[in-house]
Amino acid sequence: MTKEQVNHIQETRRILKQFSRKRGNLIPILQEVQGKLGYLPREAMLVIAGFLGIPAIDVYGVVTFYNQFRLNPPGKHSIRVCLGTACHMKGGYIALDAWKRRLDIDSGETTPDREFDLDTVACVGCCTMAPVTVVDDKPQAQVEPTKVDGILLSFELEKEKASKENL
């Protein structure tokens, strides 16, 4: 077992202390664990199944059913393209295309360097600023293809700056 996996198990066990062994707690537990680990690794799911005394497949069934849960580690920066109705009408799908093109990944994936993960979200309620992309939890207004490039450039510059400072 890798060090990371051991760590995941320990973190999961710590979270489980707040909960009773009730099936109804499954979703709140998964939410807590993902909030801590960023995703739901296999070993964490197995620990949770053992704790609740339910087959592991039941945990897996819940995790793969809901949009909120992810099985893969997230990227450093999260890109969430809003595809609510208002955003869609103002070109949310065009923005999504632009992100896919630039990051060279599909929605639901993480870039190989684990810098970005791309996903869609069904309305964040900022319909007046459509099309919206939520970048690292902050909704960005009017994200059109040129702004996609702008946002990526600003990350690039930040990274450059950081690496220079480290030298």
Partner: peptide, 10 residues
């Protein structure tokens, strides 16, 4: 009483 297979995904 095994419960090794079930529905997954949506």
């Amino acid at each position: 009483g095994i419960g090794d297979i079930s529905f997954a995904h949506r």
